[in-house]
Design a protein around this nucleic acid. Structure first.
Length: 271
DNA sequence: AAAAGCCCCTGGATGC
DNA sequence: TGCATCCAGGGGCTTT
């Protein structure tokens, strides 16, 4: 579900409030993607120092170790003083002295994993291969172009893979490619520097705009305070098959790329 | 080594 | 109403 904007909106929704809070208890529901990796009781008494984000992962630095949280396809986090009794899809509660952080995840593709530090084997496996952060100034065009030049995959799949740039999921890949006027099927290595530059800018603009708008709410995404996002109201391609392109009026087309739906305008995205 | 497919899981929408 | 099928915001793992 959540792409970079949704994860970042989630992070901002509770980071300041949970910072410094002591862990009171931990409740686990049904199994998630991986086991927590530590006895829940061991975490009690530790403090949550800060909440960072890397790609679509949230990193909760504890006074000892850190929790990696991923929302998968259907996950969302809530943070509140008091939450209702855990439902069948509430699979992780981190109860702190300042409120409870709860992961709700019907499909359970999400994960909460404890590691001692970012150099641990699991942390390296999950975070080690990630590409540049698109909203930071480490997202440099020369490296972006070099990454594209090294791949014979389609540009859409390169964006989704997260090895060159992180955080771009299916919605924002479609939107950024439309904004840049690039056909999603183009082989990444064949993009000219000029077009790659347009894409580099489009990725930043689309993601930053989505964060401002509070993310996209397709099914049940909401921020940590429970508020829905509004970006989907302005999605120009994603989910709009058959509807007129807002730029030229040509019906939006949908196709499959790597088991994912791609939406594009055959006129505005000609090459 | 890189790329393509395969799953993990539940629920909602659609079609018969 | 009931049941089958397809699809969904991700990504690690296995197979080519």
């Amino acid at each position: 579900m959540p792409e970079l904007p949704e994860v970042e909106v989630t992070r901002r929704g509770f980071a300041d409030r949970i910072a410094g809070a002591r862990i009171v208890s931990v409740r686990l529901g049904k199994p998630l993607r991986w086991p927590l990796g530590v006895e829940p009781a061991v975490l009690v008494g530790r403090r949550v120092l800060q909440v960072r984000r890397r790609g679509k992962y949230l990193l909760l630095d504890l006074s000892t170790g850190l929790l990696l949280i991923h929302l998968g396809m259907s996950g969302s986090l809530r943070f509140a003083d008091v939450l209702p009794p855990a439902g069948v899809h509430d699979h992780f509660d981190l109860v702190t002295a300042r409120g409870t952080l709860r992961l709700h995840d019907p499909r359970r593709f999400g994960a909460v994993v404890w590691v001692h530090d970012e150099a641990s084997p699991l942390a390296r496996k999950l975070l080690g291969g990630l590409g540049a952060e698109p909203l930071s100034d480490t997202f440099m065009f020369p490296a972006f172009l070099a990454g594209l030049k090294a791949s014979r995959q389609s540009i859409k799949q390169v964006l989704l893979a997260g090895k060159v740039v992180v955080g771009v999921g299916n919605i924002y890949a479609c939107e950024a490619l439309f904004a840049a006027g690039i056909r999603p099927t183009v082989v990444a290595a064949r993009l000219s520097a000029r077009r790659a530059l347009r894409l580099h800018a489009a990725i930043r603009e689309v993601l930053a705009r989505a964060v401002e708008r509070g993310g996209s709410t397709l099914r049940d995404f909401s921020g940590a305070d429970g508020a829905a996002g509004h970006f989907q109201l302005e999605a120009r391609m994603y989910g709009r098959a058959g509807q007129p392109c807002p730029s030229c009026g040509t019906p939006v087309r949908v196709m499959r790329q790597g088991q994912r739906s791609t939406y594009f305008c055959p006129h505005c995205q000609r090459a």
